[in-house]
Every structure is written in structure tokens, then in C-alpha cells.
Amino acid sequence: MFQLSIIKDTLPILPAAFALPPEQALTAAINKKYANRVLHDVGLCIAVFDLVSASEGRVRYGDGCLWYKVTFRMVVFRPFAGEVLLARVKSSDEDGIRLTLGFFDDMYVPPAYLPQPSAFDPNERAHFWLADAGPEQGTHELLDSPVAARMYIDKGEVVRVRVEMDEFYDDEPGPPKASEGVRVEREQRRPPYTVTCSIAEQGLGPTSWWKAAEAVLEGEGEEMDQG
């Protein structure tokens, strides 16, 4: 889920921070630049782990800053494909479920990765899984099923998910073109880093499902032993 990335950068230290020991000032400067930022194809930066090396500070012509060439290790959030995570359900809609980890919430479960057969209940605004139904049943038949038999994935529930893939988008808008004039039109921007997860597997999904299922299985086992 977390990893260490080695990154090299040249950073200025403002004169106000000259009183601090250089390593402390550098760590603060790196954290200021990188913390809570998505680096393309690297992941979401959390905090500096440690400094690997740093050059002597140099003064450049034109400003009073000390410029350091520094190599450091960063704690980065980047779950690998196939990793199992615990997350909370943030919201649900027809297009799937959105999950949150608190510090990161661009995690999605598309309908294809929901346990089959499942359907979206527009009244409850939640997806549900109908464990007993056959795979050939359509959405309408699923929605006609008795409510008691449905297993809902409610908002706020803790779910165990498997990471299927992650995608990075670099949607920085280019400079405005003179010919276009001033347009205040903002197209929908994609989040810079999205993780696609799956709960279509035995053992994945709300943790309460499997706690309950285990108890039932054990109970059945005991009954069979007695019989």
C-alpha cells in the first residue's frame, strides 16, 4: 500500500530558515512541495522518509536563497495490483461504488467488479448482492426480489477490496490561445490518480458479510457433526 520512492530535486531555502539546521529546513521544504501531491506514475506522496544526500547550498544570482541539490526518500501511497485493502464506502450510484481511505478517495468499484448477480437499488441508493439468485436473472427480476434476501453494500461500511489497476491522468490545461478569446469554460477534470478495485471474489466485500458467513458455516458444521 505504501512504498518508498527515491527522488532527486533542487530546492531553494529562504533566508528566514537559515537559522535552522539545513537538514531540518530541507525536510520542511520538501514536505511543503510534495506532501499530499500526486506525482505522475509514482503515486500520492505522504511525507519525507529521510534524506539520502544533499549538496552544499549555493547562492544564485538574483535571489537570496540557498539552493540545494537533494536526494531523498518519500513515503508514497501506491497500492500494487492484486493488493487487498480495507476501505470505507463513500457513495454509490448506477456507475458503481466510490471508496475512501480518508486521505485518498479516488477509488472506484465499477459494476463489472461487483459480486454477481448484483443490482443497484435506486430507493436505497446502494448496490446489493443476491447470493442465491442464478446468474441468468436480469436487473428487473433482481429488483423484484424480497428485500430481506438482499445483501446491501451501504454507505460508510468497511469493505475489503482487491486493487485491479490504477491510472494517472495529467490534465493540466495548456496556455489560453489568443484566437479563442476569454472563455470561462471549465471542462470536467479527471482526478490525477484513480484506483480501480474489485469486490467480485469470495472473501471480498463488506467485512461483516464474511464474519457472518463464517459463523453460519461453523454453526452448520457443528450441526452436521451432531447429526
Partner: peptide, 11 residues
């Protein structure tokens, strides 16, 4: 900025 090694270790 230069990424020397995006995944040097897992934490």
C-alpha cells in the same frame, strides 16, 4: 525533479 527509483522498497 527527477524520480530515481519509484519503488525502492515497500513499507
Amino acid at each position: 525533479m527527477e524520480v530515481v527509483n519509484p519503488r525502492s522498497a515497500l513499507l
